[in-house]
């Protein structure tokens, strides 16, 4: 269970999160939407402890991770997998070594066993025969798939997605969305997806939260969100220039 309570975060004079609170349900996919530069990535980085809030609490299964030391934080992080925006594969390692990395780091498994797990995870994201390729030889969509395979290698309970479909063509976008839905269902994961891609939101989300001016302004099921009368949300979904969100 992920629970955010009254998170404040500023960078210099710029206030990015302003008393944000949000409960993220277990075993569901929650999509956080909001404008570019609106603090979505900052929010995601708080959930996994890459950033610490100025005030407020990030509770993972009831533990406030902002107050943990390195060692305890690492224990919590083993519950997580994360797919970064550009996949963040280690470019000095091939695909096999990338996906095997967390396994080699944290399990005492034998090399043969690790190779089998890697193959299985790659298959789960629809890739075969790419083990010896370097990340630079892969397309954007394939890199994301490998990134996802690495994220689920340790059988995490929670997987975070940082704009999984940004920069992909429409077909690849659909494929990645489908993959997120499947992965979530097959491994019974709690997923947090941040996105500004309106189409993807309704494909993958069980719950949707709208982030605006450092707060969650609307939260609900896709149906509730579609029928919401919140002016910010209406403008965001319709992509209109008219409304409370000022572009310039």
């Amino acid at each position: 269970m992920i629970k955010l309570v009254g998170i404040h975060k500023s960078f210099g004079r710029q206030k990015v999160l302003d008393g944000l609170s949000l409960d993220i349900e277990d075993g569901k996919t929650t999509v956080i939407i909001g404008g570019s530069g609106g603090g979505k990535s900052v929010l995601l980085k708080h959930i996994i402890g890459l950033l610490k809030p100025d005030s407020g609490q990030v509770l993972i299964d009831g533990v406030d991770i902002a107050s943990l030391n390195d060692r305890d934080l690492n224990e919590i992080r083993k519950k997580f997998g994360m797919l970064f925006q550009e996949a963040a594969l280690f470019d000095s390692m091939n695909v096999m070594e990338n996906v095997a990395f967390p396994l080699r780091e944290h399990t005492g498994k034998k090399e043969k066993e690790i190779r089998e797990i890697v193959k299985e995870k790659l298959k789960a994201v629809g890739l075969t025969g790419v083990e010896d390729k370097m990340p630079s030889e892969l397309s954007g969509g394939m890199r994301k798939r490998v990134g996802l395979a690495r994220a689920i290698a340790m059988q995490p309970q929670i997987v975070l997605f940082d704009e999984p479909t940004t920069g992909l063509d429409p077909v690849m976008t659909e494929a990645i969305n489908e993959l997120i839905v499947e992965t979530q269902r097959n491994f019974d994961l709690t997923c947090v997806v941040i996105s500004h891609d309106v189409q993807s939101i309704f494909t993958v989300g069980h719950k949707i939260a709208m982030l605006y001016k450092g707060k969650i302004v609307e939260y609900g099921t896709p149906e509730e969100i579609k029928s919401s009368s919140d002016p910010v949300l209406r403008q965001f979904l319709s992509g209109s220039l008219e409304g409370p969100i000022s572009v310039i």
Binding site: L50, R77, K78, F84, F90, D91, F101
Partner: peptide
């Protein structure tokens, strides 16, 4: 520096590797 700006360093933190 490249690892930092392409989030590979964040990825290490996330995978509980210092």
């Amino acid at each position: 520096g490249t690892m930092r700006v392409t989030e590979q360093i964040d990825a290490l933190y996330v995978m509980a590797a210092n």
